[in-house]
Design a protein around this nucleic acid. Structure first.
Lengths: 270, 270
DNA sequence: AAGTGGTCTAGACCACTCG
DNA sequence: GAGTGGTCTAGACCACTTC
Protein backbone atom coordinates (compact mmCIF):
# COMPACT_ATOMS: atom_id res chain seq x y z
CA UNK A 1 0.00 0.00 0.00
CA UNK A 2 2.86 2.31 -0.51
CA UNK A 3 2.64 3.52 -4.01
CA UNK A 4 4.49 3.84 -7.18
CA UNK A 5 3.81 6.73 -9.45
CA UNK A 6 6.08 9.69 -9.68
CA UNK A 7 9.04 9.56 -7.49
CA UNK A 8 8.80 9.00 -3.86
CA UNK A 9 5.35 10.39 -3.50
CA UNK A 10 2.55 8.49 -1.76
CA UNK A 11 0.05 6.93 -4.16
CA UNK A 12 -2.02 10.04 -4.24
CA UNK A 13 -3.37 11.35 -1.01
CA UNK A 14 -1.53 10.99 2.26
CA UNK A 15 0.20 14.29 2.16
CA UNK A 16 -0.85 15.61 -1.20
CA UNK A 17 -4.44 15.50 -0.13
CA UNK A 18 -3.93 16.70 3.39
CA UNK A 19 -3.81 20.29 2.31
CA UNK A 20 -2.94 21.44 5.77
CA UNK A 21 -1.44 20.40 9.01
CA UNK A 22 -0.64 16.76 8.46
CA UNK A 23 3.03 16.07 8.45
CA UNK A 24 4.03 12.46 8.25
CA UNK A 25 7.02 12.48 10.55
CA UNK A 26 5.17 14.44 13.21
CA UNK A 27 2.36 11.92 13.14
CA UNK A 28 4.84 9.13 13.62
CA UNK A 29 6.61 11.06 16.35
CA UNK A 30 3.31 11.72 18.10
CA UNK A 31 2.34 8.05 18.04
CA UNK A 32 5.72 6.99 19.34
CA UNK A 33 5.62 9.68 21.98
CA UNK A 34 2.26 8.46 23.15
CA UNK A 35 3.53 4.90 23.33
CA UNK A 36 6.49 6.05 25.41
CA UNK A 37 4.48 8.29 27.72
CA UNK A 38 1.89 5.54 28.22
CA UNK A 39 4.61 3.25 29.45
CA UNK A 40 4.38 0.86 26.53
CA UNK A 41 8.12 1.38 26.22
CA UNK A 42 9.46 1.69 29.77
CA UNK A 43 12.56 3.73 30.56
CA UNK A 44 15.58 1.82 29.38
CA UNK A 45 13.62 -0.15 26.80
CA UNK A 46 14.86 -0.42 23.25
CA UNK A 47 12.76 1.00 20.46
CA UNK A 48 12.07 -1.02 17.31
CA UNK A 49 14.64 -0.59 14.58
CA UNK A 50 14.22 2.11 11.99
CA UNK A 51 13.39 -0.46 9.33
CA UNK A 52 10.66 -1.95 11.53
CA UNK A 53 9.19 1.48 12.15
CA UNK A 54 9.41 2.36 8.47
CA UNK A 55 7.57 -0.83 7.57
CA UNK A 56 4.93 -0.31 10.23
CA UNK A 57 4.07 3.16 8.94
CA UNK A 58 4.77 2.50 5.28
CA UNK A 59 7.19 5.38 5.33
CA UNK A 60 10.74 5.74 4.18
CA UNK A 61 13.56 5.34 6.61
CA UNK A 62 14.39 9.03 6.29
CA UNK A 63 10.97 10.02 7.51
CA UNK A 64 11.19 7.65 10.45
CA UNK A 65 14.60 9.06 11.32
CA UNK A 66 13.13 12.53 11.37
CA UNK A 67 10.42 11.33 13.73
CA UNK A 68 12.80 9.78 16.22
CA UNK A 69 15.11 12.78 15.88
CA UNK A 70 12.20 14.87 17.14
CA UNK A 71 11.86 12.65 20.19
CA UNK A 72 15.60 12.74 20.71
CA UNK A 73 15.51 16.54 20.68
CA UNK A 74 12.84 16.36 23.37
CA UNK A 75 15.14 14.22 25.45
CA UNK A 76 12.75 11.27 25.42
CA UNK A 77 15.00 8.84 23.57
CA UNK A 78 18.70 8.52 23.00
CA UNK A 79 20.79 6.67 20.49
CA UNK A 80 24.28 5.54 19.71
CA UNK A 81 25.52 4.12 16.46
CA UNK A 82 25.05 0.42 15.99
CA UNK A 83 22.69 -0.04 18.93
CA UNK A 84 18.95 0.31 19.10
CA UNK A 85 17.48 3.54 20.38
CA UNK A 86 16.59 3.59 24.03
CA UNK A 87 13.93 5.35 26.08
CA UNK A 88 15.42 7.91 28.47
CA UNK A 89 12.47 9.58 30.14
CA UNK A 90 8.71 9.67 30.29
CA UNK A 91 8.15 13.35 30.79
CA UNK A 92 6.59 15.59 28.24
CA UNK A 93 8.50 18.61 27.06
CA UNK A 94 6.98 22.03 26.95
CA UNK A 95 6.69 24.33 23.99
CA UNK A 96 8.63 27.41 23.06
CA UNK A 97 5.69 29.62 23.90
CA UNK A 98 5.51 28.15 27.36
CA UNK A 99 9.10 29.10 27.93
CA UNK A 100 8.95 32.58 26.53
CA UNK A 101 5.64 33.59 28.01
CA UNK A 102 4.91 33.45 31.71
CA UNK A 103 1.19 33.35 31.01
CA UNK A 104 1.38 30.57 28.44
CA UNK A 105 3.55 28.57 30.73
CA UNK A 106 1.26 28.94 33.72
CA UNK A 107 -1.70 27.90 31.64
CA UNK A 108 0.18 24.89 30.32
CA UNK A 109 0.91 23.62 33.81
CA UNK A 110 -2.58 24.31 35.04
CA UNK A 111 -2.05 27.44 37.10
CA UNK A 112 -3.58 30.87 36.90
CA UNK A 113 -1.25 33.70 35.89
CA UNK A 114 -1.84 37.39 36.35
CA UNK A 115 0.30 40.40 35.81
CA UNK A 116 0.18 44.11 36.54
CA UNK A 117 2.24 46.92 35.08
CA UNK A 118 3.59 49.01 37.94
CA UNK A 119 5.24 51.48 35.61
CA UNK A 120 5.93 52.10 31.95
CA UNK A 121 8.36 54.81 30.98
CA UNK A 122 10.14 55.76 27.83
CA UNK A 123 13.81 56.49 28.28
CA UNK A 124 17.06 56.09 26.35
CA UNK A 125 18.38 52.53 26.26
CA UNK A 126 21.27 51.67 28.52
CA UNK A 127 24.36 50.44 26.68
CA UNK A 128 23.50 46.84 27.55
CA UNK A 129 19.89 47.21 26.43
CA UNK A 130 20.98 48.80 23.18
CA UNK A 131 23.31 45.90 22.50
CA UNK A 132 20.82 43.18 23.43
CA UNK A 133 18.11 44.82 21.35
CA UNK A 134 20.43 45.62 18.45
CA UNK A 135 19.50 49.31 18.65
CA UNK A 136 21.66 52.36 18.14
CA UNK A 137 23.02 53.60 21.47
CA UNK A 138 20.60 55.95 23.14
CA UNK A 139 17.53 54.89 21.17
CA UNK A 140 14.43 55.28 23.23
CA UNK A 141 12.99 52.08 24.70
CA UNK A 142 9.96 51.39 26.83
CA UNK A 143 11.05 50.32 30.30
CA UNK A 144 8.37 48.39 32.14
CA UNK A 145 8.16 47.10 35.68
CA UNK A 146 5.67 44.34 36.18
CA UNK A 147 4.62 42.08 39.01
CA UNK A 148 3.54 38.55 38.12
CA UNK A 149 1.22 36.46 40.22
CA UNK A 150 0.78 32.71 40.12
CA UNK A 151 -2.50 31.54 41.65
CA UNK A 152 -2.75 34.90 43.36
CA UNK A 153 0.71 34.73 44.92
CA UNK A 154 3.40 37.19 43.82
CA UNK A 155 6.20 35.06 42.42
CA UNK A 156 8.11 37.18 39.94
CA UNK A 157 9.25 40.73 39.25
CA UNK A 158 9.80 41.53 35.61
CA UNK A 159 11.86 44.45 34.35
CA UNK A 160 11.62 44.63 30.60
CA UNK A 161 12.98 46.93 27.95
CA UNK A 162 10.83 46.82 24.84
CA UNK A 163 12.39 47.83 21.54
CA UNK A 164 11.25 51.17 20.16
CA UNK A 165 9.25 49.61 17.34
CA UNK A 166 6.91 47.77 19.74
CA UNK A 167 6.86 50.41 22.47
CA UNK A 168 3.64 52.07 21.33
CA UNK A 169 1.77 48.77 21.18
CA UNK A 170 2.90 47.83 24.68
CA UNK A 171 2.04 51.27 26.04
CA UNK A 172 -1.49 50.87 24.73
CA UNK A 173 -2.08 47.64 26.63
CA UNK A 174 -4.22 47.64 29.76
CA UNK A 175 -2.44 47.75 33.09
CA UNK A 176 -3.50 44.23 34.01
CA UNK A 177 -2.68 42.69 30.63
CA UNK A 178 -2.37 38.95 31.11
CA UNK A 179 0.22 38.31 28.42
CA UNK A 180 2.15 40.96 26.56
CA UNK A 181 3.53 38.47 24.04
CA UNK A 182 0.06 37.12 23.27
CA UNK A 183 -1.26 40.65 22.86
CA UNK A 184 1.64 41.65 20.63
CA UNK A 185 0.98 38.65 18.43
CA UNK A 186 -2.76 39.29 18.23
CA UNK A 187 -2.68 43.07 17.78
CA UNK A 188 0.50 43.72 15.87
CA UNK A 189 1.38 40.38 14.35
CA UNK A 190 4.68 40.40 16.20
CA UNK A 191 5.56 36.82 17.05
CA UNK A 192 8.56 35.65 19.05
CA UNK A 193 10.50 32.95 17.30
CA UNK A 194 13.85 32.83 19.01
CA UNK A 195 14.96 33.25 22.58
CA UNK A 196 18.14 33.35 24.55
CA UNK A 197 18.15 32.91 28.30
CA UNK A 198 20.69 33.61 31.02
CA UNK A 199 19.99 32.05 34.39
CA UNK A 200 21.65 32.89 37.69
CA UNK A 201 20.91 33.65 41.34
CA UNK A 202 21.12 36.91 43.25
CA UNK A 203 19.95 38.50 46.50
CA UNK A 204 16.71 40.45 46.54
CA UNK A 205 17.11 44.21 46.34
CA UNK A 206 14.79 46.42 48.35
CA UNK A 207 12.30 46.85 45.51
CA UNK A 208 12.38 43.10 44.80
CA UNK A 209 11.85 42.34 48.48
CA UNK A 210 8.90 44.68 48.82
CA UNK A 211 7.11 43.41 45.74
CA UNK A 212 7.75 39.72 46.31
CA UNK A 213 7.08 39.93 50.04
CA UNK A 214 10.41 38.43 51.02
CA UNK A 215 13.29 39.71 53.12
CA UNK A 216 15.91 41.89 51.52
CA UNK A 217 18.92 39.79 50.52
CA UNK A 218 16.94 36.58 50.29
CA UNK A 219 17.64 34.35 47.27
CA UNK A 220 16.04 35.00 43.90
CA UNK A 221 16.32 32.99 40.72
CA UNK A 222 16.95 35.34 37.82
CA UNK A 223 16.17 34.63 34.17
CA UNK A 224 17.31 37.30 31.77
CA UNK A 225 16.17 36.75 28.24
CA UNK A 226 15.85 38.33 24.86
CA UNK A 227 13.09 37.40 22.42
CA UNK A 228 13.39 37.91 18.69
CA UNK A 229 11.16 37.63 15.66
CA UNK A 230 11.48 35.17 12.83
CA UNK A 231 13.86 37.54 11.09
CA UNK A 232 16.05 37.80 14.15
CA UNK A 233 14.87 41.24 15.17
CA UNK A 234 14.98 41.61 18.97
CA UNK A 235 11.66 42.45 20.59
CA UNK A 236 12.42 42.70 24.29
CA UNK A 237 15.17 42.27 26.81
CA UNK A 238 13.92 41.24 30.19
CA UNK A 239 15.19 40.63 33.70
CA UNK A 240 12.80 38.31 35.55
CA UNK A 241 13.37 37.50 39.22
CA UNK A 242 11.57 34.59 40.82
CA UNK A 243 11.09 34.01 44.49
CA UNK A 244 13.25 31.06 45.52
CA UNK A 245 11.30 27.82 45.44
CA UNK A 246 8.64 29.09 43.09
CA UNK A 247 10.12 27.74 39.87
CA UNK A 248 12.78 25.37 38.63
CA UNK A 249 14.26 25.25 35.16
CA UNK A 250 15.09 21.96 33.57
CA UNK A 251 17.15 20.98 30.56
CA UNK A 252 18.18 17.65 29.18
CA UNK A 253 21.17 17.18 26.98
CA UNK A 254 23.31 14.51 25.42
CA UNK A 255 26.74 13.99 23.96
CA UNK A 256 25.36 14.92 20.56
CA UNK A 257 23.22 17.89 21.63
CA UNK A 258 24.06 20.27 24.44
CA UNK A 259 21.64 23.18 24.53
CA UNK A 260 22.73 24.45 27.93
CA UNK A 261 25.86 26.40 28.73
CA UNK A 262 27.53 27.57 31.85
CA UNK A 263 29.43 30.84 32.08
CA UNK A 264 31.71 32.13 34.77
CA UNK A 265 30.95 35.38 36.48
CA UNK A 266 28.05 37.63 35.72
CA UNK A 267 27.01 35.94 32.54
CA UNK A 268 28.60 38.47 30.27
CA UNK A 269 29.18 36.97 26.92
CA UNK A 270 32.78 37.85 26.53
CA UNK B 1 33.18 16.66 -10.42
CA UNK B 2 30.72 14.81 -8.34
CA UNK B 3 30.72 11.30 -9.54
CA UNK B 4 28.66 8.62 -11.05
CA UNK B 5 29.37 5.08 -10.21
CA UNK B 6 27.19 3.17 -7.84
CA UNK B 7 24.43 5.18 -6.35
CA UNK B 8 25.00 8.32 -4.48
CA UNK B 9 28.49 7.55 -3.45
CA UNK B 10 31.34 9.99 -4.06
CA UNK B 11 33.51 8.98 -6.99
CA UNK B 12 35.65 6.82 -4.79
CA UNK B 13 37.47 8.56 -2.03
CA UNK B 14 35.93 11.47 -0.15
CA UNK B 15 34.37 9.51 2.57
CA UNK B 16 35.23 5.98 1.56
CA UNK B 17 38.89 6.83 1.79
CA UNK B 18 38.65 8.90 4.92
CA UNK B 19 38.68 5.85 7.10
CA UNK B 20 38.09 7.87 10.19
CA UNK B 21 36.83 11.13 11.47
CA UNK B 22 35.85 12.96 8.33
CA UNK B 23 32.17 13.52 8.10
CA UNK B 24 31.01 15.64 5.25
CA UNK B 25 28.23 17.56 6.92
CA UNK B 26 30.38 18.34 9.95
CA UNK B 27 33.07 19.73 7.69
CA UNK B 28 30.53 21.96 6.02
CA UNK B 29 29.08 22.97 9.38
CA UNK B 30 32.54 23.78 10.67
CA UNK B 31 33.36 25.96 7.69
CA UNK B 32 30.07 27.80 7.94
CA UNK B 33 30.51 28.19 11.68
CA UNK B 34 33.90 29.70 11.14
CA UNK B 35 32.51 32.10 8.58
CA UNK B 36 29.80 33.15 11.03
CA UNK B 37 32.10 33.50 14.03
CA UNK B 38 34.60 35.47 11.98
CA UNK B 39 31.91 37.96 11.17
CA UNK B 40 31.80 37.17 7.48
CA UNK B 41 28.08 36.75 8.03
CA UNK B 42 27.05 39.41 10.57
CA UNK B 43 24.12 38.90 12.92
CA UNK B 44 20.94 39.32 10.95
CA UNK B 45 22.59 38.42 7.65
CA UNK B 46 21.02 35.85 5.37
CA UNK B 47 22.92 32.69 4.57
CA UNK B 48 23.25 31.45 1.00
CA UNK B 49 20.47 29.17 -0.13
CA UNK B 50 20.77 25.43 0.34
CA UNK B 51 21.26 24.92 -3.36
CA UNK B 52 24.10 27.43 -3.43
CA UNK B 53 25.77 25.75 -0.50
CA UNK B 54 25.26 22.32 -2.05
CA UNK B 55 26.87 23.51 -5.26
CA UNK B 56 29.74 25.16 -3.45
CA UNK B 57 30.62 21.96 -1.62
CA UNK B 58 29.58 19.53 -4.33
CA UNK B 59 27.31 17.88 -1.83
CA UNK B 60 23.69 16.92 -1.97
CA UNK B 61 21.08 19.18 -0.52
CA UNK B 62 20.39 16.69 2.25
CA UNK B 63 23.95 16.88 3.48
CA UNK B 64 23.88 20.66 3.47
CA UNK B 65 20.63 20.61 5.38
CA UNK B 66 22.23 18.43 8.01
CA UNK B 67 25.09 20.89 8.29
CA UNK B 68 22.87 23.92 8.81
CA UNK B 69 20.66 21.90 11.17
CA UNK B 70 23.75 21.46 13.32
CA UNK B 71 24.27 25.21 13.43
CA UNK B 72 20.59 25.73 14.16
CA UNK B 73 20.82 23.34 17.10
CA UNK B 74 23.70 25.44 18.39
CA UNK B 75 21.52 28.50 18.21
CA UNK B 76 23.78 30.20 15.66
CA UNK B 77 21.28 30.36 12.83
CA UNK B 78 17.52 30.28 12.55
CA UNK B 79 15.15 29.54 9.73
CA UNK B 80 11.58 29.81 8.65
CA UNK B 81 10.01 28.21 5.65
CA UNK B 82 10.28 30.11 2.42
CA UNK B 83 12.86 32.60 3.68
CA UNK B 84 16.63 32.35 3.73
CA UNK B 85 18.32 31.26 6.92
CA UNK B 86 19.52 34.07 9.13
CA UNK B 87 22.42 34.45 11.53
CA UNK B 88 21.26 34.80 15.14
CA UNK B 89 24.40 34.91 17.23
CA UNK B 90 28.17 34.84 17.07
CA UNK B 91 28.91 32.91 20.22
CA UNK B 92 30.32 29.46 20.23
CA UNK B 93 28.41 26.76 22.05
CA UNK B 94 30.08 24.50 24.53
CA UNK B 95 30.19 20.75 24.47
CA UNK B 96 28.31 18.21 26.47
CA UNK B 97 31.40 17.37 28.48
CA UNK B 98 31.80 20.98 29.45
CA UNK B 99 28.32 20.99 30.87
CA UNK B 100 28.50 17.71 32.70
CA UNK B 101 31.96 18.11 34.11
CA UNK B 102 33.00 21.07 36.21
CA UNK B 103 36.65 20.43 35.39
CA UNK B 104 36.12 20.16 31.64
CA UNK B 105 34.05 23.29 31.69
CA UNK B 106 36.61 25.30 33.62
CA UNK B 107 39.33 24.21 31.25
CA UNK B 108 37.22 25.12 28.26
CA UNK B 109 36.72 28.67 29.50
CA UNK B 110 40.35 29.05 30.48
CA UNK B 111 40.13 28.74 34.24
CA UNK B 112 41.77 26.39 36.65
CA UNK B 113 39.52 23.93 38.44
CA UNK B 114 40.29 21.97 41.56
CA UNK B 115 38.23 19.75 43.79
CA UNK B 116 38.59 18.01 47.13
CA UNK B 117 36.53 15.20 48.59
CA UNK B 118 35.54 16.20 52.11
CA UNK B 119 33.80 12.90 52.73
CA UNK B 120 32.83 9.69 51.00
CA UNK B 121 30.44 7.32 52.75
CA UNK B 122 28.44 4.34 51.69
CA UNK B 123 24.86 4.36 52.85
CA UNK B 124 21.45 3.23 51.61
CA UNK B 125 19.96 5.42 48.91
CA UNK B 126 17.23 7.84 49.89
CA UNK B 127 13.95 7.29 48.04
CA UNK B 128 14.73 10.19 45.70
CA UNK B 129 18.25 8.94 44.99
CA UNK B 130 16.96 5.45 44.30
CA UNK B 131 14.46 6.83 41.81
CA UNK B 132 16.92 9.13 40.08
CA UNK B 133 19.51 6.39 39.81
CA UNK B 134 16.99 3.71 38.85
CA UNK B 135 18.10 1.54 41.77
CA UNK B 136 16.04 -0.68 44.02
CA UNK B 137 15.02 1.21 47.17
CA UNK B 138 17.64 0.94 49.84
CA UNK B 139 20.49 -0.05 47.52
CA UNK B 140 23.78 1.21 48.83
CA UNK B 141 25.20 4.29 47.12
CA UNK B 142 28.35 6.28 47.65
CA UNK B 143 27.51 9.69 49.04
CA UNK B 144 30.25 12.23 48.46
CA UNK B 145 30.70 15.79 49.62
CA UNK B 146 33.09 17.79 47.54
CA UNK B 147 34.28 21.37 47.43
CA UNK B 148 35.12 22.83 44.04
CA UNK B 149 37.52 25.69 43.49
CA UNK B 150 37.80 27.94 40.48
CA UNK B 151 41.15 29.72 40.22
CA UNK B 152 41.68 28.96 43.88
CA UNK B 153 38.36 30.41 45.03
CA UNK B 154 35.69 28.13 46.50
CA UNK B 155 32.68 28.48 44.21
CA UNK B 156 30.66 25.30 44.50
CA UNK B 157 29.62 22.59 46.93
CA UNK B 158 28.82 19.26 45.35
CA UNK B 159 26.79 16.54 47.04
CA UNK B 160 26.73 13.48 44.84
CA UNK B 161 25.24 10.02 45.12
CA UNK B 162 27.14 7.59 42.91
CA UNK B 163 25.35 4.44 41.79
CA UNK B 164 26.51 1.24 43.47
CA UNK B 165 28.20 -0.06 40.34
CA UNK B 166 30.66 2.85 40.16
CA UNK B 167 31.05 3.33 43.91
CA UNK B 168 34.23 1.29 44.23
CA UNK B 169 35.93 3.16 41.40
CA UNK B 170 35.07 6.52 42.93
CA UNK B 171 36.20 5.42 46.38
CA UNK B 172 39.56 4.50 44.95
CA UNK B 173 40.18 7.98 43.56
CA UNK B 174 42.57 10.35 45.32
CA UNK B 175 41.07 12.95 47.61
CA UNK B 176 42.04 15.81 45.34
CA UNK B 177 40.88 14.17 42.11
CA UNK B 178 40.46 16.88 39.51
CA UNK B 179 37.62 15.28 37.56
CA UNK B 180 35.66 12.25 38.65
CA UNK B 181 33.96 11.88 35.28
CA UNK B 182 37.29 11.99 33.45
CA UNK B 183 38.74 9.42 35.83
CA UNK B 184 35.71 7.16 35.47
CA UNK B 185 36.04 7.29 31.72
CA UNK B 186 39.76 6.60 31.76
CA UNK B 187 39.84 3.90 34.43
CA UNK B 188 36.54 2.12 34.04
CA UNK B 189 35.38 3.03 30.56
CA UNK B 190 32.25 4.60 32.03
CA UNK B 191 31.28 7.53 29.83
CA UNK B 192 28.43 9.94 30.42
CA UNK B 193 26.23 10.35 27.38
CA UNK B 194 23.03 11.87 28.66
CA UNK B 195 22.25 14.44 31.29
CA UNK B 196 19.25 16.05 32.85
CA UNK B 197 19.52 19.25 34.82
CA UNK B 198 17.25 21.06 37.27
CA UNK B 199 18.17 24.62 38.08
CA UNK B 200 16.83 26.74 40.92
CA UNK B 201 17.90 29.09 43.70
CA UNK B 202 17.99 28.56 47.44
CA UNK B 203 19.49 30.05 50.60
CA UNK B 204 22.82 28.74 51.86
CA UNK B 205 22.55 26.23 54.70
CA UNK B 206 25.11 26.35 57.47
CA UNK B 207 27.38 23.77 55.84
CA UNK B 208 27.09 25.56 52.48
CA UNK B 209 27.88 28.88 54.13
CA UNK B 210 30.95 27.57 55.92
CA UNK B 211 32.43 25.89 52.87
CA UNK B 212 31.68 28.67 50.39
CA UNK B 213 32.65 31.41 52.83
CA UNK B 214 29.37 33.24 52.54
CA UNK B 215 26.72 34.20 55.09
CA UNK B 216 24.06 31.67 56.03
CA UNK B 217 20.90 32.34 54.02
CA UNK B 218 22.73 34.08 51.20
CA UNK B 219 21.68 33.15 47.64
CA UNK B 220 23.02 30.06 45.93
CA UNK B 221 22.38 28.83 42.41
CA UNK B 222 21.60 25.13 42.51
CA UNK B 223 22.07 22.69 39.63
CA UNK B 224 20.85 19.19 40.32
CA UNK B 225 21.67 16.73 37.63
CA UNK B 226 21.77 13.09 36.74
CA UNK B 227 24.27 11.65 34.27
CA UNK B 228 23.68 8.44 32.39
CA UNK B 229 25.65 6.15 30.09
CA UNK B 230 25.00 5.50 26.46
CA UNK B 231 22.59 2.74 27.43
CA UNK B 232 20.66 5.06 29.71
CA UNK B 233 22.08 3.68 32.93
CA UNK B 234 22.29 6.43 35.57
CA UNK B 235 25.77 7.03 36.95
CA UNK B 236 25.32 9.78 39.50
CA UNK B 237 22.77 12.13 40.96
CA UNK B 238 24.25 15.36 42.14
CA UNK B 239 23.24 18.55 43.95
CA UNK B 240 25.68 21.33 43.07
CA UNK B 241 25.40 24.72 44.76
CA UNK B 242 27.19 27.72 43.31
CA UNK B 243 27.95 30.94 45.09
CA UNK B 244 25.76 33.67 43.60
CA UNK B 245 27.56 35.54 40.88
CA UNK B 246 30.07 32.81 40.17
CA UNK B 247 28.26 31.19 37.26
CA UNK B 248 25.43 31.81 34.84
CA UNK B 249 23.66 29.23 32.74
CA UNK B 250 22.56 30.06 29.27
CA UNK B 251 20.22 28.43 26.81
CA UNK B 252 18.94 29.45 23.45
CA UNK B 253 15.76 28.16 21.96
CA UNK B 254 13.39 28.68 19.10
CA UNK B 255 9.84 28.02 18.09
CA UNK B 256 10.96 24.73 16.60
CA UNK B 257 13.30 23.61 19.37
CA UNK B 258 12.79 24.34 23.04
CA UNK B 259 15.32 22.51 25.17
CA UNK B 260 14.58 24.42 28.36
CA UNK B 261 11.63 23.94 30.66
CA UNK B 262 10.26 25.73 33.65
CA UNK B 263 8.51 23.96 36.49
CA UNK B 264 6.52 25.35 39.37
CA UNK B 265 7.55 24.59 42.92
CA UNK B 266 10.47 22.47 43.96
CA UNK B 267 11.21 21.01 40.58
CA UNK B 268 9.55 17.70 41.28
CA UNK B 269 8.63 16.02 38.08
CA UNK B 270 5.02 15.39 38.79
C1' DA C 1 28.28 -12.30 11.00
C1' DA C 2 24.07 -10.04 11.38
C1' DG C 3 21.76 -6.12 12.71
C1' DT C 4 21.35 -1.21 13.39
C1' DG C 5 22.07 3.53 13.30
C1' DG C 6 24.92 7.27 10.78
C1' DT C 7 25.88 9.34 6.46
C1' DC C 8 25.05 10.42 1.68
C1' DT C 9 22.87 10.90 -2.95
C1' DA C 10 19.39 12.45 -6.52
C1' DG C 11 15.27 13.83 -7.40
C1' DA C 12 10.44 15.25 -6.41
C1' DC C 13 6.37 18.04 -4.61
C1' DC C 14 4.63 21.31 -1.39
C1' DA C 15 4.09 25.56 1.60
C1' DC C 16 5.69 29.66 2.24
C1' DT C 17 8.22 34.29 1.65
C1' DC C 18 9.56 37.98 -0.97
C1' DG C 19 9.91 41.33 -4.52
C1' DG D 1 5.80 34.02 -9.88
C1' DA D 2 10.40 32.90 -8.72
C1' DG D 3 12.99 31.43 -5.00
C1' DT D 4 13.67 28.92 -0.81
C1' DG D 5 13.12 25.95 2.92
C1' DG D 6 10.25 21.75 4.54
C1' DT D 7 8.97 17.08 3.62
C1' DC D 8 9.46 12.65 1.44
C1' DT D 9 11.25 8.64 -1.23
C1' DA D 10 14.47 4.73 -2.50
C1' DG D 11 18.55 2.98 -2.32
C1' DA D 12 23.51 2.66 -1.00
C1' DC D 13 27.85 2.20 1.94
C1' DC D 14 29.98 2.62 6.33
C1' DA D 15 30.98 2.32 11.46
C1' DC D 16 29.61 0.32 15.25
C1' DT D 17 27.13 -2.84 18.61
C1' DT D 18 25.55 -7.17 19.65
C1' DC D 19 25.13 -11.99 19.65
Amino acid sequence: MIMSGRAGRPAHGERGANGMGTVRYLEIAEELRRAILSGEYPVGARLPSESDLAARWSASRGTVRQAVATLAAEGLVGSSQGARRIVLRHERRHSFGELNSFAQWAEGVGHEARGRFLSRTRRPATPEEAERLALAPGTEVLAALRLRLLDGEPVMVERTAYADWVAAAVEAMPEDCRSVMDALAADSGVVAHYGEHLIDALPAGSEDARLLEVRRGSPLLRQRHVSATRTGRPIEWSDDRYRAGSVTFSVSNSAVAAPLERHPGGGEHR
